[in-house]
Amino acid sequence: MNTKNDLIARMMDDMQEDLIVFIKDNVDSFVKWDLIRFFYENPHTIDSVENIARYTGRSPGAVQGELAELATHGLLEENKVGRMAVYALSSDPKVRQQIADFIQASNDPKFRPKIIFHLLKGMKA
């Protein structure tokens, strides 16, 4: 980490560097966290914004932008099926492993509060 004065950095300094980078680059909202978990648990999901919103108990407006950003970052694949934007989990094994590592860390009582703190500190929602 760059600065020892950074509280987040100090809190997260016992986490693997790759994991910290993954979180900082990709997980800047609780909605994204939910979506990543959803696709991790249901890795062969292929569906539209409206249906993914329904599956995750959110509104389409809440997930639309987040899905698009996750696709831009390479965690999801976005395809146009007719007029619909359809999302699926990236088929890249490396990306899937990063997601698995993140979910595993987020289930760890030691790391979970740190991820939550990171989100509360830096994020949009």
Partner: peptide, 25 residues
């Protein structure tokens, strides 16, 4: 085995196109 979660409208449209995601699976 693959357990695919989707909706009728998406899966139908996806299967109709060439080399769609479901077809690839």
């Amino acid at each position: 085995l693959r357990v695919i979660m989707s909706s009728p409208e998406v899966s139908k449209a996806d299967l109709e196109r060439v080399n769609g995601t479901i077809e690839k699976m």
